[in-house]
């Protein structure tokens, strides 16, 4: 059965079609969900895509967290449904407290749009379940606020419970402990700053993102 992936469109999202395209390309079936919907329909997984939801007003993700669909996303996540936040989607997941910590302005205050080498740190996540710890992936980043920040206590919890999913090979943004992506305890909720959907076709210079999306849709 084809895995249906719902990609939530907030006003200001701009990577939703790329995600749908990439999900389709790896054998899943992507579909758009509107942020004002109260239900997720029958999707098997949810992606919160990159962009500038609600104009990033107040803080990145702060407004999106109150979009009507987020109640359904939260329930879905709590029931074990796969939820992935990419870039702005990661920021939304932290604001919605589905993942700990926060994303802050890049060290150096530069908007970064460039390839990044990621190291897989945990394979207990819906994105990395097909991979091995230590695998290196080439997946681009595209953000101004990707500097992962958390308290010492949270960092200790992340480390002790293997919740850090990806680190940067060369930390581009000042992120705490080189963190590029984290997961919840069950591994069904993952947030990452890099964009797997932009590395899902050889024409784009890397297909490493497709490996992650294949993990999401459960294809070996």
């Amino acid at each position: 059965m084809t895995t249906r992936v719902g990609v939530v469109v907030f006003p200001g999202s701009n990577c939703e079609h790329d995600v749908v395209e990439a999900v389709d390309a790896v054998g899943g079936s992507g579909e758009l969900l509107w942020h004002k919907d109260n239900s997720l329909g029958d999707v098997d997984a949810v992606v919160l895509p990159g962009g500038f939801a609600h104009g990033d007003y107040l803080r990145t993700g702060a407004m999106a967290r109150f979009s009507p669909i987020m109640d359904a996303v939260t329930r879905f996540a709590q029931d074990g449904g796969p939820v992935v936040g990419i870039c702005n989607g990661f920021q939304i997941l932290t604001e919605a407290q589905l993942l700990p910590g926060a994303l802050y302005k890049n060290q150096g205050l530069k908007f970064l749009c460039q390839p990044a080498v990621l190291r897989v740190e945990s394979t207990d996540s819906v994105l990395t379940r097909r991979l091995n710890v230590g695998d290196e992936l080439n997946v681009p980043i595209n953000h101004f606020e990707g500097n992962y920040v958390c308290s010492e206590e949270i960092l200790a919890v992340l480390r002790e419970n293997d919740l850090i999913v990806f680190t940067y090979h060369d930390n581009p943004n000042g992120a705490t402990a080189d963190i590029a992506g984290i997961r919840n305890e069950n591994g069904n909720v993952v947030g990452l700053m890099p964009h797997p959907e932009r590395a899902a076709h050889s024409l784009l210079g890397s297909t490493d993102g497709a490996l992650l999306l294949k993990g999401l849709i459960g294809i070996d």
């Binding site: 107040l58 803080r59 700990p100 910590g101 926060a102």
Partner: peptide, 8 residues
């Protein structure tokens, strides 16, 4: 709940 993010 909204105006500030206590993490940062």
């Amino acid at each position: 709940r909204f105006l500030a993010n206590p993490v940062i």
